[in-house]
Write a protein that binds this DNA or RNA. Structure first.
Length: 461
RNA sequence: GGCUGCGUAGCAAAACGGUUAUGCAGUGGCCUGCAAAGCCAUCUACGGCGGUUCGACUCCGCCCGCAGCCUCCA
């Protein structure tokens, strides 16, 4: 039975879909004015893993992840670059898709863009105004009247009085209450703008997600996810907008993933302490990043460091080594391991425990290498369970021989030949020559391993 | 100041009111010509102080430390 921690109730709850067998899930995606960093990668990998698990459980999942392709930062960046906004966002959307593919993140079912959802956004704002929940300020911007929404703060555990007491928002004369947030901004000169009942303008950030999620999944859907930092105000505002406009419950389960940290500090654009996915990929194989992300629970903080990435690499090498030269064609699965794996994932997607099950399975497989009937079932189970985490799907030898950077095709052939020469030296009991070849390769980061059957194989360190 | 959450062995990271987490690293052994890989064994834990309990890392209280949100942020 699947349990999910719901931020709304601060408890793990048994998951019950709204409609039997179906799940609608919306995740806040990126604002595309720059490359994805490891923090973004975490959201993508975490919810990709959630999506894979729902499908494995047999649910008909509709997974929506939006793209915010219009906002202040995008406009600013485009101006700085002297670049057209559409061109800029397209460039970074493509880059994002590249990063996702590298990390084995499967594409969501729908990827709505804010700029293509303007009619839905305008419609929702009209409803909010009609219901008295929004108003046009004296500067022409449209605001949401926070005090008119009864449950404001229910997600983030804040209340309007506390928020006002700790007020840090700039006083905006156009607002009735400093906590009110903008739904529609009047166009400034040289900014992209759309026609609306309130004149030329563009949507505020929060209303975009309300409109896009509702449009793709309906007024009421099962799961809404995103980073912890979106809890307030973004998700709180989404609830106020959507529930205010439709009068229905917006979302049943709110899921928030923890941050990636560097030296115990949040990785973020504003602190400037971030690594982009493409930077990290120059140093580490993509699957190592994915493993690293899944090695801690999605709600826990994840500390980014070379040491951690290197450890993830070693751990992954152990799993691929177990699978090396294994037949994985069996359709039969080891029931115990599968049960333990499912139990871990059922417990709020506990991927660290799920990985521990894979390591136990790998040990059993290593022990069973001389029993082919047993080994094929264990190896097949290992590969199959790992696929639910988006791991271990490469050919083991290719993984073990590869590096983060491309090596020229000849290099492998040269290594193969040296390994053969060493094998010949071994057969002639010329240990000195055999060892010198091996030491030589080691210096180049190539580790030679002798198999019991007399053959040798190699991998890159 | 208000609101969340966290503090586990050398490092990373889980579970659980009483029993092995797991990975990396260390130590001893088996295997190997020697290695590597693998297997077996093994050493390091639950921030501090109290309380509840037959029994607490696990529940409760207080204290200390850390992070996040309260402004754009995944």
């Amino acid at each position: 039975m699947l349990k999910i921690y719901n931020t709304l109730t601060r408890k793990k709850e048994t998951f019950t879909p709204r409609v039997a067998g179906k799940v609608g899930m919306y995740v806040c995606g990126m604002t595309v004015y720059d490359y994805c960093h490891v923090g973004h990668a975490r959201v993508m990998v975490v919810f990709d893993t959630v999506a894979r698990y729902f499908r494995y459980l047999g649910y008909d999942l509709t997974y929506v992840r939006n793209v915010t392709d219009i906002d202040d930062k995008i406009i600013q960046r485009a101006n700085e670059n002297g670049e057209d906004i559409g061109q800029l966002t397209e460039r970074f959307i493509n880059a994002m898709h590249e990063d996702e593919r590298a990390l084995s993140v499967l594409p969501p079912d729908h990827e709505p863009k804010a700029t293509q959802s303007i009619p839905d956004i305008i419609h929702m704002i009209e409803v909010l105004i009609a219901k008295g929940l929004a108003y046009v300020g004296n500067n022409g911007d449209v605001f949401y009247a926070v005090t008119k929404f009864e449950n404001y703060g229910k997600l983030s555990g804040k209340n309007i009085d506390d928020l006002q007491a700790g007020e840090r928002v700039d006083v905006d004369k156009a607002k009735q209450n400093p906590l009110d947030f903008v739904l529609w901004k009047m166009a400034k000169i040289n900014e992209p703008a759309w026609e609306s009942p309130w004149g030329l303008g563009r949507p505020g950030w929060h209303i975009e997600c309300s409109a896009m999620s509702t449009c793709c999944l309906g007024n009421h859907f099962d799961i809404h996810g995103g980073g912890m930092d979106l809890q307030f105000p973004h998700h709180e505002n989404e609830i106020a907008q959507s529930e205010g406009a439709t009068g229905e419950t917006f979302v049943n389960v709110w899921m928030h993933n923890g941050f990636v940290r560097i030296n115990e500090e949040k990785m973020s654009k504003s602190l400037g302490n971030f690594f982009t996915v493409r930077e990290v990929l120059k140093q580490y194989k993509p699957e190592i990043i994915r493993f690293f992300i899944l090695s801690s629970h999605y709600r826990s903080p994840l500390n980014y460091s070379d040491e951690q990435l290197n450890e993830a690499g070693s751990a992954l090498t152990r799993l691929y080594t177990a699978l090396r030269d294994c037949d994985v064609s069996s359709l039969a699965f080891e029931a115990d391991y599968k049960a333990r794996f499912d139990q871990a994932m059922d417990d709020d997607f506990n991927t660290p425990v799920a990985l521990a099950v894979l390591f136990d399975l790998a040990r059993e497989l290593n022990k069973a290498k001389d029993q082919p009937e047993k080994a094929v079932v264990l190896a097949s189970t290992l590969k199959h369970l790992a696929s639910l985490l988006g791991l271990l799907q490469e050919d083991p030898l290719s993984f073990l021989k590869s590096t983060a950077t491309e090596v020229d095709a000849d290099a492998d052939a040269v290594i193969d030949q040296l390994v053969q020469e060493r094998l010949a030296a071994k057969q002639a009991k010329n240990w000195a020559l055999a060892d010198s070849i091996r030491d030589n390769l080691k210096e180049q980061g190539v580790i030679v391993e002798d198999a019991p059957n007399g053959n040798s194989t190699w991998r890159r360190d």
